[in-house]
């Protein structure tokens, strides 16, 4: 019975064939696509130079430095500085012991990031305007 049912159903479905859309179907699809492509000429991907995780890492490091400097006295040596016993590394990292230095670095970083963001927005605007004029 199963084989018979399978056979009947297969034959009848094949015989029924496929439904046909209207004659203008292809034209309608292509018109929609062309219209949408004109409205949004390019869907370019904004790939960030620094990834989301990268920003978390940078934020963490900056917060750590800032926190260490602001919450402790200037005599305090950072934990990772202590772990490096060599004189050269100690000298190198000792610059972070200066509160003024770290604060100025942080302020500069914020300033640069803000400008990068503003310039990036401006450049996107210019790019889109240029593409629309083409």
């Amino acid at each position: 019975m199963n084989r018979e049912a399978d056979k009947i159903v297969r034959i009848s479905i094949k015989k029924a064939g496929l439904e046909k859309p209207g004659k203008d179907f292809l034209h309608s699809v292509m018109s929609k696509i062309e219209t949408q492509t004109e409205v949004a000429p390019l869907r370019f991907k904004n790939e960030a130079l620094i990834s989301r995780n990268g920003w978390f890492l940078i934020g963490g490091i900056v917060s750590l430095l800032l926190g260490t400097v602001l919450l402790t006295d200037s005599e305090y040596k950072l934990p990772f500085v202590i772990s490096f016993e060599t004189e050269m590394l100690h000298d190198y990292f000792s610059i972070f012991e200066s509160r003024i230095f770290v604060v100025s670095i942080v302020i500069t970083a914020i300033f640069v990031l803000l400008h990068t963001w503003l310039i990036s927005r401006k450049m996107d605007d210019w790019y889109l305007r240029y593409k629309h004029q083409m």
Binding site: L18, E19, K20, P21, L26, V29, M30, I33, T37
Partner: peptide, 16 residues
Amino acid sequence: ISAFENLVRKYQDMVF
């Protein structure tokens, strides 16, 4: 873009 017409022609009946 016009190459897309070939895909539409090929699959339009089944999709519909």
